[in-house]
Computed example of a mutant assay.
Amino acid sequence: MIIHFLGLEVLWHRVVTAVSTIPDAEAWLGSAALLGIYTLIALPVGFGSGFIKIDIQKSWVVVIGVIAGSLLRPALTEELFFRVLLLPHATENTSPAALWFWGLGGLVIFLVYHPLNAMTFFPVARETFLNPIFLFLAALLGVTCTISYWQSGSLWPPVIIHWVIVAVWLLLLGGYQKLYA
């Protein structure tokens, strides 16, 4: 009774369904296309603004740490929270208006989370996480992951998209220097 009252039953259903749904080939291809679209927008914006630049991390300790670490956080944890818990799953038969409401609301929360995180728990990221280009790219990432989640019904495609984008930025495009140097 308490679980139902608190809405935990719905959240539990979302987590179990999203984690256990194995994407089919069409979902993976759709997610790859979304990643391609993200890349086609993000690279010109990032390079044109000077926010990103080629800067390849050569330390294997850094490379392995980023690859492993960015899979857990931010990719898995943020996708679980900002997509799976906040957004209705396809099995919930939600109206298009409600999907838009939750999608936009989740995106706003995702964007606000980054500066708040920098101002509280991750102060070295303050300048980066308050940068308008970073926030634009984060919004684009949020939209990309939301569409991927809704298309696939699975946690896994948005996690992979988020992970690839963050790892590439940190390891090849100057993100590591912005956050940790």
Rank of each mutant, 00 (worst) to 15 (best):
A33Q: 09
I37D: 14
T39M: 11
L40P: 05
I41V: 15
I41D: 11
L43F: 13
L43H: 12
L43E: 05
P44F: 11
S49P: 01
F51K: 03
I52Y: 04
D55A: 03
V61Q: 10
V62D: 09
V63W: 07
I64S: 13
V66T: 14
I67Y: 15
L72P: 00
R73C: 13
E78D: 13
L80Y: 11
F81K: 01
F82G: 01
V84Q: 00
L87Y: 02
P88L: 08
H89A: 05
T91R: 13
T91G: 11
N93C: 06
T94R: 15
T94W: 15
S95E: 08
A97L: 10
A98R: 12
G103A: 07
L107H: 05
V108E: 10
I109P: 00
I109W: 03
V112S: 12
P123A: 06
A125R: 12
R126W: 12
R126C: 01
I133S: 08
A138K: 07
L141Q: 13
G142H: 02
G142K: 00
T146A: 08
T146P: 01
I147C: 11
S148M: 09
W150C: 09
Q151V: 10
S152Q: 01
G153Y: 06
S154W: 01
S154V: 04
L155T: 00
P157T: 05
P158L: 11
V159Q: 00
I160E: 04
I160W: 04
I161C: 05
H162M: 03
V164D: 07
W169T: 13
W169P: 01
L170V: 09
